[in-house]
């Protein structure tokens, strides 16, 4: 009450001393409220984080593909052993100069103990994929059934427009195929043959890469993306491509 009386005399503290957690809580609160104003349901089990970062509108509870293949990364477990990369290269014939998946490293300034974080990256199989939009020959396209961003190497002319269009650096030029190559969630090598997961996900010894169906409420990926307790995010949300690779900690 004392503070309230002196409100007019108080100076703005700014946000310099505001911890990341506080900002995050504040943002979450704000976004939840915004969701309500925008017609969202306050009793919805879908977290506001998901609404905002992953699928802003249109794809929140109604997914355009069935199955809607997706991956969630538990990045605090990643130790950059790169067994995923080896498995990927072996499964999909990726040459040593190329990659379908990669591991990025980030130094976490100000952390008390662990100051290094590894971030696995791969094609995000975006709902609004920019690579397919800019491809002049439709050599790269969204599979109409499962939403995987595929390559038709017969049509690829090697112009590399897709590389420029992709916000995630998920493509490389394969000199043997003379076409751009990229992650297809192991569609040709595994999923189309009945496998339930990708090569990288199966090879990960630390349970980082969880692969599944985002449209299936009994699937682990669905459950981990649609919850309120842990923050879930996507890389480069500002690109607005509605990616299907999610990240979380813990």
């Amino acid at each position: 009450m004392k503070n309230l009386k002196n409100l007019d005399k108080m100076t703005n503290e700014g946000v310099d001393n505001c911890s990341v957690e506080e900002r995050r809580h504040f943002l979450k609160m704000g976004l939840t409220v915004t969701g309500v104003f925008a017609g969202g349901t306050i009793l919805s089990a879908v977290s506001s984080v998901n609404k905002v970062y992953a699928s802003t509108s249109g794809f929140v509870e109604k997914y355009p593909y069935k199955p809607h293949y997706s991956m969630i990364m538990h990045i605090e477990n990643c130790i950059d052993c790169e067994k995923c990369k080896s498995a990927c290269a072996e499964t999909n014939g990726v040459p040593s100069y190329g990659f379908r998946t990669n591991i990025l490293e980030r130094q976490v300034a100000g952390a008390l103990d662990q100051q290094r974080e590894f971030i696995p990256v791969l094609c995000n199989h975006c709902n609004l994929a920019q690579c397919t939009r800019v491809c002049p020959t439709k050599a790269t396209y969204k599979d109409p059934n499962n939403g995987i961003v595929m390559m038709n190497i017969e049509k690829c002319i090697g112009c590399l427009s897709c590389q420029l269009g992709c916000p995630y650096n998920a493509r490389y030029f394969n000199e043997e195929k003379w076409a751009v190559d990229k992650c297809t969630f192991c569609w040709e090598s595994r999923l189309s043959k009945g496998a339930k997961t990708t090569g990288c996900s199966e090879a990960c010894p630390a349970g980082v890469r969880i692969f599944g169906d985002l449209s299936n409420p009994s699937d682990r990926v669905y459950k981990e993306v649609h919850q309120m307790t842990k923050t879930v995010w996507v890389l480069r949300p500002q690109a607005g491509t509605k990616p299907n690779v999610f990240y979380t900690r813990g």
Partner: peptide
């Protein structure tokens, strides 16, 4: 706990042995 304190990974190994530049592993 503190996994990446010891697990420096392929990136850390490569950096320590001069196999990459300071900007990280090579991208193509």
């Amino acid at each position: 706990t503190r996994c990446t304190t010891c697990h420096v990974g392929v990136i850390g190994y490569s950096r320590a042995h001069g196999l990459v530049n300071e900007e990280g592993p090579a991208h193509h």
